[in-house]
Write a protein that binds this DNA or RNA. Sequence first.
DNA 1: CTGAAAGCGCTTACAG
DNA 2: CTGAAAGCGCTTACAG
Lengths: 346, 346
Amino acid sequence: MTRRATAQDVADLAGVSRSAVSLVLNGRAAGNISRVKQEAVRDAARQLRYTPNAVALSLRSKRTATLGVLTWPDRRQMPLALLGAVYSEASSAGYLLMMVDVLERPGQVDALLDRRVDGFLVVAPELTEFVLPEPLTGVPAVLVNCFDPHLGASSLVPDEVAAGTSAAERLLESGHRSLGVLAGREGLASERRLQGVRRVAAAAGLPEPVVVRTGHTIEDGYAGARELLEAELAPSGLVCTHERLTLGALLAAHDLGLAVPEDVSLVSLDDGEQLAAPLVPPVDLVVRPDGLIAAHALDLLVEQLELDLVASPRQLSFACPLKPGGSVAAPRQQALGRQVGQVGQA
Amino acid sequence: MTRRATAQDVADLAGVSRSAVSLVLNGRAAGNISRVKQEAVRDAARQLRYTPNAVALSLRSKRTATLGVLTWPDRRQMPLALLGAVYSEASSAGYLLMMVDVLERPGQVDALLDRRVDGFLVVAPELTEFVLPEPLTGVPAVLVNCFDPHLGASSLVPDEVAAGTSAAERLLESGHRSLGVLAGREGLASERRLQGVRRVAAAAGLPEPVVVRTGHTIEDGYAGARELLEAELAPSGLVCTHERLTLGALLAAHDLGLAVPEDVSLVSLDDGEQLAAPLVPPVDLVVRPDGLIAAHALDLLVEQLELDLVASPRQLSFACPLKPGGSVAAPRQQALGRQVGQVGQA
DNA sequence: CTGAAAGCGCTTACAG
DNA sequence: CTGAAAGCGCTTACAG
């Protein structure tokens, strides 16, 4: 890297002092520096392509305009959609991000602290508890898609129970009376989404939904859906708590010769992978509002940074709207019963 | 953030000078500082949890131990696998990363330069040309999954032609003689992968593969595969140039009542989404060696940084190994012909 | 063996 | 209207 120009270089070229350069370039020249010299400074700066060294600036101002992001993958998957939204909001607010895998490399939290990032964002791949690490106490931080049980920082989370509720209601509204749920075995998100479905069924006086608890892979979804759909009294509508499960369920339905939505209806919850919505048919999706969550997260954090006060932690919850697709239809006449076709690899 | 201890604080507590603190903590105390004072310094540092301010360090050393990463999404998808591998290697080498969406926010390249990152990594979501931006000339930089036609920097790319070749050979070895290709409409990767397939077919004296050029979504794969599989002389083996196309193809096969691999064999190229391999059945995959590429990229860059010389640009190409799945089998007897079932939604 | 000084590149009071 | 000085927090020659 050829050495970059400093304020001194500009001053020399313009024939003024270093402080004059600073004044002019920061718009504080009014009534301090003569018009002629102002122009000289601007010219010199342009000519040398001068831009202040942000490191020096940071040392002086004690601000880096940089945020630390603590995240981690869940089943090899980073919370990409959420991170993207966070990045976008941070950029707009003038911050750059340093991301760290806090599970794999917890020590890097200290590296971030040493570098004097202005604040922290914790972005979880799945709703979970997250106890703020000890070195972060007193440091501005906001939790996204996770929350601190000890209330060490503000948090923003999707309302997963309501999301499950919406999914189930979508099926009810189309006339389904027997619901099945393909639910992840782990994690708060699975738990709450499932809870939402159950709540709706109970409130509507429906029989208990049939639930299969399973892993979170496509294969798991496939196997779980077969179990559900091959049962004696197979449900007519399925809620899948995770996108990859939905994908597996669709494959399973096909293997069983069941058409979606004619033979079985599907509603999926969103994990930000953009996997369920662009399926064939596009699956009805309860969407996590990543953009909204990220925008509020940055508002909250930036406010703390600019006012230089650590606000008392708040917990914000976000509704998840339903994005209609083509995977829900009225159930076939219940009375007629239904035969599971024996097509494809049985 | 409660004010963090400085070297001065440690010196005061230990009753020595600031320079003594620096010497001791940097292991240069030997024969300079008395044993007693050394201990005093260490104690004080521990007690105050002193850790040097990396910003001040950077101002002095002109190194930030930070790398700028230029990347961008392709069809809303970031090159996650590659970025993850790059992150992991960078961490191991002691570097933190600042990532920037260079398409959406090209101005942030300057922000990175102002912050004096030590070097740059450009990580492309799909093989492509990438002309190094003007402000980066002379700055240590390495291109990953892309290359500069003007040779402005070293680059590391997967051998996409050979990847296509491997995919096709996989089918040939199982006895397939009629190949179909579902190929993305855009991008060098599609082009080269397709070229690899064609080359194999030609070399083996097979008929020209039937090619459908299409978009890159799951729906595109679905539609394209139907076109291919419903044709008069449908191919017995399919190569899909992208994971999402593969997914669509599998759905299409199912809708047509074709079992994989009994009725049609499938091989996919890898885009790092981990979508094709965990399918049901797991699809045979030609894998991009992200870990290897990332490791070499960092070696190349770190070498430049530590030797402080900008090496003359090199172009490295990486072979993509085949990861066998369960989606390839010998074709049905050609002579018998085959009927496309009319199951599912036609 | 130890402390005072210089300097990395900035900006902001503070004299003149 | 302008320049010299201090200070952000470090480390490394350099005197004593």
